[in-house]
Computed example of a mutant assay.
Amino acid sequence: MASFIKALLLVVVAEMGDKTQLLAMAMASKYKVKHVMMGVLIATVLNHAMAVAVGSYLGNVIPMDIVKIVAAVSFLAFGLWTIRGDKLDDEEEKKVKFGPIVTVAIAFFMAEMGDKTQLMTVSIAAENSSPILILLGTTAGMLVADGIGVVGGAWMCKHVPESYIKWIAGIIFMFFGTLTLYNGLPTTLLSPVYIILFLAVMGILIYLFGVKFAYHGQLCNIVLPEQEVSVDKENNTSERA
């Protein structure tokens, strides 16, 4: 059960502001919420089943010490990826000539290939020996996060700055990554010199990903299109007056 809870919570954190959550929000503007969530469920089960299979295989053939270090580095990378944010390409939002559920499932499956949550599922599965629980946990986490985005996206944009969501999620990942790396590295690499060097490198990377090359406003651009249009109209009216 601990593996299930860990997988669920980490995926919920990873999915906030992620490309696939943005896609789910965009699809919810065209289709019924129940159809969107059903498509997300189908795509997630298929996609994450592959990720869990790959992660379980790697966990069996690679020494656990190396798995822990790779997982730690992955969590740090996921944290940087999260604070940078994601954007939804126009191609990923195009309609497919099928019913709504199949359309969402295909689009979501393709968008999830190589995405942060899929790669994280591989890492979690490699660290644990409960593939079924990992699959159930990551699938539930995707449904929770995308459900929050689809249903509560507008509320979040009105009351919680998008940057707060990204930074909190990113810091959580980097904290767990740093903790896992600390516990997995040999003691010879835990000297003050290496720790200071690590902190300096992470500080530079956080600035680059979180400030210099970050995507801004992607979440609210999708969930509040009508509000933005009305604001533009009001601004134009006031300028004419």
Rank of each mutant, 00 (worst) to 15 (best):
I42F: 13
I42T: 08
A43K: 06
T44W: 05
T44R: 06
V45W: 12
V45R: 11
L46N: 04
N47G: 14
N47T: 12
H48T: 03
H48M: 08
A49G: 11
A49W: 15
A53T: 12
A53S: 12
A53C: 11
V54H: 08
V54W: 07
V54C: 10
G55V: 02
S56F: 04
S56E: 04
Y57K: 02
Y57D: 02
G59I: 00
N60E: 14
N60V: 00
V61S: 09
V61E: 10
I62A: 06
I62S: 09
V67Q: 08
K68Q: 14
K68F: 14
I69K: 03
V70F: 10
V70W: 02
V70Y: 01
A71M: 09
A72T: 03
V73S: 03
S74T: 12
F75E: 01
L76T: 01
L76G: 08
A77M: 13
A77W: 10
F78Y: 04
L80R: 03
T82I: 14
T82G: 06
T82F: 11
I83P: 09
I83K: 12
D86V: 00
D86S: 13
K87L: 05
K87H: 11
L88K: 09
L88M: 04
D89A: 07
D90K: 10
D90W: 06
E92M: 05
E92F: 03
K94D: 05
K95V: 04
K95D: 13
K95H: 08
V96Q: 10
K97E: 09
G99C: 02
G99T: 02
P100M: 03
I101Y: 09
I101C: 05
I101A: 05
V102Q: 09
T103P: 03
V104C: 03
A105R: 09
F108A: 02
F109I: 01
A111C: 12
A111F: 08
A111G: 01
E112M: 07
K116A: 11
K116C: 00
T117R: 09
T117G: 03
Q118I: 06
L119S: 05
M120Q: 13
M120N: 11
M120P: 00
M120R: 05
M120G: 14
T121N: 05
S123W: 00
S123A: 15
S123K: 01
S129A: 14
I132N: 06
I134R: 00
L135F: 07
G137K: 02
T139M: 06
T139G: 11
G141L: 08
M142A: 15
M142T: 15
M142N: 15
V144L: 14
D146G: 06
G147R: 02
I148L: 15
